[in-house]
Design a protein around this nucleic acid. Structure first.
Lengths: 120, 120
DNA sequence: TATTATAATGTATGATGCACACTATTGTAA
DNA sequence: TTACAATAGTGTGCATCATACATTATAATA
């Protein structure tokens, strides 16, 4: 029983994987900095470790989906990220595909085990 | 523009990751063998590579979520997999969490960019 | 019979992203 | 000055997935 829980955790981790990216991109129509994203997303039910987020932001920037800019005027320097043009496009496509995945999966989950529809 | 597509593919792969497990588990209230799962899931909009599925099945069995049994009576020997008791429980929990993830994500996707709710 | 296609299972390898556990710096409040 | 919060960063290890390949057995076809 105890290790079923551990396996669950791992499976959940895999499930969440990739969704973090959508979550992040969804918040970057307006510029945000890393720390604000961490708290913001957590409040919205998508907890992200800083050690996960920061590398993610850098990856997305390197891929050209985000633009970044340091703001050194405020108290502590903050690095603001914003969706690039490409990022917007990719985000839109991602959302479309995401919905398709969700719909397929909901379908198999609900029809789970009931195979008895007129094919016998 | 061309490489945005590649990045998309990679992001999608990450998105799908983990969902395959739910898809597989959802079909195993009744015994199935690997090949039948591949075709079955593909028809239902969840394409899986055999080279992905077989290791996955073995993993899940090793974790105690699946039971397996060879059937050597039929033409070609087939290895049938079925949800174990633990597997059922884990699947149910996975589904709950999955729905929660979906709901959180849908929420941030739809509220994308509209931050203007009385907190300033 | 020889050949090809397809059903069916399996393995090895490589790329990649995520969590975790750190380090580091700067404000601010005690 | 001590301590904590805000803010950003790095390095390592693990697990999953895709791709490609290998293998056996049957069915079909020439």
């Amino acid at each position: 029983m105890a290790d079923a829980k551990e396996h669950l955790d791992k499976l959940l981790q895999e499930l969440r994987r990739g969704t973090i990216t959508i979550g992040v991109l969804s918040q970057l129509s307006e510029a945000q900095y890393g720390y604000s994203l961490v708290t913001m997303l957590s409040e919205k039910g998508i907890p992200v470790e800083p050690g996960t987020l920061y590398p993610l932001l850098r990856r997305l920037e390197k891929q050209g989906l985000l633009d970044s800019q340091w703001d050194t005027n405020e108290a502590r320097p903050r690095k603001y990220y914003l969706l690039s043009k490409t990022g917007k496009e990719v985000f839109d496509l991602l959302v479309v595909e995401w919905k398709s995945i969700v719909s397929s999966l909901n379908h198999v989950i609900e029809n789970e085990g009931d195979e008895k529809n007129g094919d016998h």
